[in-house]
Amino acid sequence: MNSGRRQFIGRGGAMLAGLAIAPGMLLYDLAHGRPASGAVRWGMLIDTSRCESGCDDCVKACNKENGLSGGTGPADVQWIRKLELKDSRTGRGVSLPMMCQHCEEPPCVDVCPTAASFKRADGIVLVDRHLCIGCRYCMMACPYKARSFVHEPVHDQKPDVPRGKGTVESCTLCVQRVDRGETTACAEACAKAGHKAILFGNLNDPGSEISRRIKAVASTQIRADLGLNPGLHYEGL
């Protein structure tokens, strides 16, 4: 029994040493998934002229995909919301979806004391909820009001979207779908509704539809004055 125990501990130790030497780079890991690449920068181009006022299919799809309640009280979690804007001078109305802008220089990442807020190599800004202590400083720092704090215990989470009370969360750009090579739930829903206002793609690939479109038509980033270089671009603002 003693030798058996030693063997287990020894093997476990060897494995752990292997894990410690090359975190994330073990062969079996690579066989099962590729790390997010810095050659990619995920982003979106939102054509506000195609976004229909009053339509919230993207919001519903997001809630369904990520297991959010869909409540709209002041303490409820909202990853994406529909904004109805009115130009104060001309009165022109604009409708658009608003969510985490996946900045290149995200203020939430700068201020997070535990580095729980982070940016993946492919530009997706996320919260590592294992590290988040719930201080909410990121919510104070975000210029887009993109983040929500989970004010209540959560039940029946989606298996690939873990979430829990006492941590901060926001749009993940449907990272679980992106890692499977799919598009985001909101973009899919918008296309399904026939609007095609949300174009998701790789900003770093000059041949991608999003890159070609951004090159061809005028688009803006929200609060571009802050110099955060968001991954989300808007047309028709």
Binding site: F8, G33, R120
Partner: peptide, 26 residues
């Protein structure tokens, strides 16, 4: 037997690379 002993560490390692690098391993 290995899993019984090490699942905690394996899960922790897996969680880190999954969350931070998008590697959804075994």
């Amino acid at each position: 037997k290995f899993m019984r002993l090490n699942h905690g560490d394996l899960l922790k390692h897996q969680r880190t690379i999954t969350v931070h690098q998008g590697i959804r391993g075994k």
